[in-house]
Design a protein around this nucleic acid. Sequence first.
DNA 1: GTCTATAGCAGGATAGAC
DNA 2: GTCTATCCTGCTATAGAC
Lengths: 205, 205
Amino acid sequence: MTAGKREVIVRAATELFLRQGYQATSTEQIAAAAAVSKQTVYSRFGDKESLFREIVLGVAATAEAFAADLTASLADVSEARDVAPVLRALARRYLAAVMDPQVLALRRLVIGEAARFPEVAAAYYERSPAMVLAALADGFARLAGLGLLTVDDPRRAADDFAFLVLGRSLDHGMFHLPATTPSDAQIGATADHAVDVFLGCAARM
Amino acid sequence: MTAGKREVIVRAATELFLRQGYQATSTEQIAAAAAVSKQTVYSRFGDKESLFREIVLGVAATAEAFAADLTASLADVSEARDVAPVLRALARRYLAAVMDPQVLALRRLVIGEAARFPEVAAAYYERSPAMVLAALADGFARLAGLGLLTVDDPRRAADDFAFLVLGRSLDHGMFHLPATTPSDAQIGATADHAVDVFLGCAARM
DNA sequence: GTCTATAGCAGGATAGAC
DNA sequence: GTCTATCCTGCTATAGAC
C-alpha cells in the first residue's frame, strides 16, 4: 500500500495548510497527522514547497470542474426560454460554492502566500476564478446569440454578474473565518437580487 | 530622540510585513531595518504579535479617513444636480484607492493571517471595507431623500455599487502581485461602466 | 534606555539501520 | 521504502553590561 500513502499525506497536509497556513504548519505535524514519518514525506515530495504547490493546484482542479458545470447549465438553455430562473439557480450554486468554508480557506491560503509563491497564486487565479468568469462570458455570449439576452460585452457582463452575486459575501468571508457560511435563505435573497439588477441592465448596456 | 524610535520601528516593520508577511519577517530583520537593536523593539512593543496588531490597526485608520472623504463628497451634492458625474468621480477615486499596491498588500497580509489573528481581521474589516460601504449607504440614502436617486435598500445599493466598481479588479489584484495597478484609462473605463450599470438599475430596484 | 551576547527551542532536511 | 535519531540553522525572547 505504497501508493495510498501519498494520498494520505496529501490529505493530511491539505487540512493542516488550510487551517493553519503554510508557515505555521510544520512537516512534523504533517507526518504525524498522516501517521507516517517525516522521512516518508520528504522521500515522496522532496520538500515542503513542492508539497504545497502540488496541493494547491490539485485542489484548484475542483474549480475547473465547477466551471464546466456552469458552462453546461448555460448551454442547456434553448431558444424561447426565460433565462431569469436559470440565472437565479446558477447564481445560487455559484454563491454557495464560493462561500464553502474550504474554498474560502484555500483562497486565504493562496492570497496570504502570494508573495512567496507568485506562480501558485497566478495559476490558482487562472484555474479557478478566471475560469468561471470565462465560462460565464461564453454562456452569456451564447444567450445573446439566441436573442435571450442583450449583452454588449460578454466579458464585462460576466464580471458584473459575478460580483453582483459574490461581492459582499466573498469580501466579508475573506476576513471572518468563524462560520460566515450564509444560510440558504440568505443565499437565495442575494442571488435573486443580483439577477434582478443584472437583468435590469443587461438589456441596455 | 526616544519618541522617534517607535516611529522608525513601526515604519520599518510595516514595510517588511507588507512585503514578506508576518511569519517570514523576523524581529531581527525589523531591528536591522530600523537600525536599532532587537532589545529596543521588544522593550517598546512587548512581542512580535503586539507589534503586528498595532501596525495593522494603525494603517487601517487611513481607510477611515477615506470613508469620511467619500461621505463628504456625497454630502456635497445638492438638490437638482445630476448625480452621474459625481458618482463617476467617486468610483474613480474608490477604485484607485483600493488598487493601491500598499492597500492590496495590507489586505493580503490581513487575510493570510486571519486564522492566527481573527480579531485583527475582524477589526480591519470593520474599519476599512465595512466603513466605506456604510458611508456609501448613508450617502445613497441621502440622495434618495433628495429625490436624486431611487433606492429601495441603501445598503444593498452600496454593495452593488462597490462591487460593480471594484469586483474584478480587486479579485485579480489579490492574486497578482507584480504591478497590477490599473492605468488611469482602465480605472476610468471600469468606473464609468459600473456607474452606468448602477444608475440603469438603481431607478428600478 | 540601549546595546551585545546568549539562552532555549523548533523547524526543515538528512543519515543510517532495517 | 520506511522508520528513528540527529544535524544545523534561525527564530523569539531575555540577561546583563554600560
